[in-house]
Design a binder for these strands. Structure first.
Lengths: 207, 207
DNA sequence: GTTGAGTCCGAACGCTCGTTCGAAGACACG
DNA sequence: CGTGTCTTCGAACGAGCGTTCGGACTCAAC
């Protein structure tokens, strides 16, 4: 087995950092904490990363990009608005549940970045929000006027999905599939007043 | 005009602290920041408060209790489950919108407390969650089986409501009444699949 | 054996943190 | 005036922070 490459070590460092940031919070985590937990010396951390803030940025931007790319991929070729929305939700929750620490850091430490780091992440955020709003527009076109303001509904959906780091346990008795189904039903039922058939839910559509 | 009493000065201090905590985050706010912004000397702060953490605790516990008491009051004598749920939501959002800084501190800095402080706030949290779950149970009894798991639905609703500090501007073009109406419709429509009539919404019921 | 790039670290720098302490001003009461 | 309580603060304490710097180790290339 070859010794890990530079990039692999950085990845491992980011994984540790995400876990510790999620546990203690970004501001309460010291570089000495990260050194201890990653087995690297304090000074050694700076060989892989320019600053503590870059560490946070790399966690946020890489995983947000992964969510974004996954969404693009799952929507490719899908035209039915309801199914597009279902897949959007499913992709988000899927990634969230399998990367709880990183996504908590993304959701909870949004205000901890500054300067160009903040601008970069906010740009992705804008695109992602736009994508959801476009889907909601298409849903309205095919299913008549919505029961709620589109922008409010979009942020409510993000609220439902991003809040889960406060309570959801991926290993608990509610599986990711059930969670996704529940959120899809809740949101779709409320937004267009349509009882969502099983067929429209992403899990059964994918299976 | 009489000079402010001890309690009034503490209240003013808590208001300033909530604003600064909301802006910069609890961990990134120093007692020196609070001294500067409140016009009190650094040492002077400790005449009103035992520690920085007690400051956070007082903000969280007082305002959470206010939300809780308001909820109790608005539900008193109301028996229709749908209206109870609507009032629960309306009370929450109403208080949130008129105390954005304090509620952001309550929502965002939940993990910053420790020891007895944490236990006390968590106890209120448990009661509050229980209250919502009970309402959802009653809704199911009167309107048939829900379209989503009760516990998941409860946390989704909290997610929608508590997330608003990330995007909502009480002075923007979406008023609190509209926000509340939207959230009620979204949630009720999704949870029991019932198109919510205007009459069931708290604003019209109260007017 | 020497080079040179890649990797890692002990020790330190300057700074900010939450908190404390002793003293001083304000002010009512005798 | 003197006394005591309430209120306020300047100055300092020890601790921890993010970051830097010079040097030392490894190891393939020549």
């Amino acid at each position: 087995m070859a010794s890990p490459t530079h990039d692999q070590k950085l990845d491992a460092l980011l994984t540790v950092a995400a876990r510790v940031f999620a546990e203690r919070g970004y501001a309460n985590t010291s570089m000495r904490d990260l050194a201890r937990e990653s087995g690297v010396s304090l000074a050694g951390l700076y060989y892989y990363v320019e600053s503590k803030e870059e560490l946070l940025f790399l966690i946020q931007s890489r995983h947000f990009q992964a969510v974004f790319d996954g969404m693009r991929e799952r929507l490719a070729g899908v035209t039915d608005p309801i199914e597009r929305l279902s897949r959007f939700i499913d992709n988000h929750l899927d990634y969230f549940a399998s990367h709880m620490a990183e996504m908590k850091v993304l959701s909870h430490e949004a205000g901890a970045l500054s300067g160009d780091y903040l601008l970069a992440v906010n740009e992705t955020k804008r695109s992602y929000t736009r994508a959801l709003m476009d889907i909601l527009g298409a849903v309205e076109q095919s299913h008549g006027p919505a029961h709620a303001n589109r922008r409010v509904a979009a942020y409510c959906l993000f609220g439902m999905m991003n809040w889960i780091y406060n309570w959801y346990d991926p290993l608990g008795d509610v599986g990711v599939e059930a969670l996704s189904t529940n959120v899809c039903r809740l949101f779709l039922g409320g937004y267009i007043g349509l009882p969502v058939s099983e067929a429209a839910l992403p899990r059964s559509a994918a299976g």
